[in-house]
Simulated scan of single mutants.
Amino acid sequence: MPLPAPSSPPCRSEVVAALRAAGCVFAEDEAALLTGAARDEAALRALVARRVAGLPLEQVLGWAEFHGRRVAVDPGVFVPRRRTEFLVERAAALGAPGDVVVDLCCGTGAVGAAVLGALGDAELHAADIDPAAVRCARRNLAPLGGLVHEGDLYAALPARLRGRVGVLVVNAPYVPTAELGLLPPEARDHEPPVALDGGADGLDVQRRVTAGAGAWLAPGGVLLIETSRRQAPETAAAFTAHGLTATTAVCEDRDATVVAGTRGRHPGVRRATRPRR
């Protein structure tokens, strides 16, 4: 349902009706955000048209709210999910000020930025294989002093980080290839497949991450990976297969699951604060 012809500025109820007709569950909330973001009537009509066409709200607005901060989201870049805030909380609980923090498969860089904010003091690096994500992450992380690298997982990272990473946080794609078609249209049509497709069982990228983590983690450093509850046993098994002691944490409210692991130390034990490098 498009907005009425531009004979007069659209009222809030018209925007709500257009969004609801397009299937937006939270039409009232979205109408408020779109109206607040539009500088004039023409801009509002353009924003509503993009949302009605199926673009994710965050890509239409150009930002997402994540862990108490506003994160820039460019068109075609993976939108950070609220469930992933649990990954940040686990990283903050297991990391320490002064750590080297690496956000692999960083997308917008939202996770790395939030972990940095939670720890208060860290050396932040992020990496992604998608050039659009790298450009977006640099917008978000450069003002925080974070460095963003382009490339395939660890191949993107500076060699000087080997053996120094205190917190390695990863939201790798974990949707099985055969289930991509079951995702909401916002995701499957407007987010890059490389950020969604985890291979036959959804765990291809996770296995590569766990296989290489030992060379990059500092003594007592922790690897944290978001996964699903169904896949968590296999995720944890990949940790164990590569010498990492793993524990699984679940947040019922956000339907979020995180596996964390260290080499030679239980990941529930917080390490002592280290001086900044």
Rank of each mutant, 00 (worst) to 15 (best):
L3E: 11
L3W: 08
P4K: 11
S7G: 15
E14M: 05
E14V: 09
F26L: 14
D29N: 09
D29M: 10
A31H: 06
A32V: 14
D40R: 03
D40Q: 02
R45E: 12
A49L: 09
R50K: 13
R51V: 01
L55Y: 11
L57N: 11
L61W: 11
L61P: 10
G62K: 06
G62V: 06
G62E: 05
E65S: 10
E65I: 00
R69Y: 05
V71E: 05
V73K: 08
G76V: 05
V77K: 04
V77D: 05
F78Y: 14
V79D: 05
P80C: 04
R82N: 01
E85M: 07
R90F: 01
A91M: 07
L94W: 12
L94R: 15
P97N: 03
G98M: 04
V100Y: 00
V101I: 12
G107S: 04
A110L: 10
V111A: 10
E123C: 13
L124K: 02
H125A: 14
D130Q: 10
P131T: 10
P131C: 09
R135K: 13
R139D: 09
L141C: 06
P143L: 07
G145A: 11
D152M: 13
Y154L: 15
Y154V: 14
L157N: 12
G163H: 03
V165T: 08
G166Q: 03
V170N: 12
P173L: 04
Y174V: 07
V175H: 07
T177L: 13
T177P: 14
L183H: 12
E186G: 08
A187M: 13
D189R: 15
E191V: 02
P192V: 13
P193H: 06
V194D: 02
L196I: 09
L196T: 04
G198Y: 08
A200H: 03
G202R: 10
L203F: 03
L203V: 06
L203N: 03
R208L: 08
T210R: 12
T210G: 12
A211R: 15
G214W: 02
A215C: 08
W216Y: 08
A218K: 06
P219M: 04
G220P: 07
G221K: 00
I225T: 14
P233Y: 12
T235S: 15
A237Y: 07
T240S: 15
H242T: 15
T247N: 08
T248A: 07
T257W: 02
V259N: 00
R263V: 10
G264A: 06
R265D: 07
H266F: 03
G268K: 06
R276Q: 05
